[in-house]
Design a protein around this nucleic acid. Structure first.
Ligand SMILES: [Mn+2]
Ligand SMILES: [Mn+2]
Ligand SMILES: [Zn+2]
Ligand SMILES: [Zn+2]
Lengths: 150, 150
DNA sequence: GATTTAAATGATAATGATTATCAATATGAA
DNA sequence: TTCATATTGATAATCATTATCATTTAAATC
């Protein structure tokens, strides 16, 4: 994994730094989750020795870089901070469902999404961008809670 | 139309002001479009007599109010200013396709959206919120332009 | 029409996520 | 080790939006 980072960076004449390695490790340890830049910053701070924190600006810059070289997928959100997830070879790029109550993010089934995307382009000529579907609503867990309160 | 404004405002002990009327007129004249607050502000400025501009803060506040009383639909956008459209009795609340090239906004066919929404809830229990689908990509016009350039 | 009071307005400050700036530091090739 | 330049960290700037607050106004009451 750090290996892959090395390769990708060298390809573009970029340098391997402790900051970039540390950020990648955090992303790897949180694989499957969708992290805000701030989360990553805090996790890094928790891991670092006294007084040697990685700057927040560096985290922002690194996420931008990691997206450019194809290591992470950025998930822009309406009114909320963007989130990032490590791109895994075992899982395709996908679209998301975002709960307005608890903030959880789940993935939309690939076949379902693909089918919808095809219908849209057939009907309107509009080409849906990869992973650009972010659909807001209420997850099953939050809906249950509402039901139980009654 | 101004009539309806009157009724809605009185229902909640709110006041009918020239600013609110002027903003509603702009929205009505632009019905079918999706306007940024800034657009509304500029259109108002163009209509107003010398030196009697409506404040930008008032436009923001009024859009918030109009949404609360159900006159307009707010369309939050990723990384872009929100847009508003007057709710028309002749057209249902709908979801949107947003072009990343030209910024145009078009509506998703109701049946298509409804079907997708049902599939999602059946499969995951996730309840899609009204008008919360904002799908980013490239409109047919922009795609044509790219093709023609080659 | 004059009085009264809460609502509304306009100017401006504050906010929060993100990007830009820039001097100081560190990487990696020579 | 030297050196060019990529990177970092601190901080300022940006931009849409919201909050603040003194001043003005709608509209109910007299
Ligand atoms: Mn994901
Ligand atoms: Mn619309
Ligand atoms: Zn939830
Ligand atoms: Zn377009």
């Amino acid at each position: 994994m750090l290996n892959q980072l090395n390769i990708l960076l060298r390809e573009e004449n970029l340098r391997v730094t402790p900051q970039r390695e540390a950020i990648l490790k955090v992303l790897y340890d949180c694989r499957g989750h969708h992290l805000e830049t701030e989360n990553i910053y805090e996790l890094l701070a928790a891991r670092s020795e006294k007084g040697k924190k990685i700057g927040l600006a560096t985290v922002y810059r690194t996420m931008e870089l990691f997206e450019k070289i194809g290591l992470v997928s950025r998930l822009s959100m309406e009114n909320l901070p963007a989130r990032y997830e490590l791109i895994l070879q075992t899982k395709l790029i996908h679209h998301h469902l975002i709960c307005l109550k608890c903030g959880c993010v789940q993935e939309i089934d690939d076949k379902l999404a693909e089918d919808f995307k095809n219908r849209i382009i057939d009907q309107t000529g509009f080409e849906v961008k990869d992973k650009s579907m972010k659909i807001y609503g209420y997850c099953s867990r939050c809906r249950e809670q509402v039901k139980n309160k009654r």
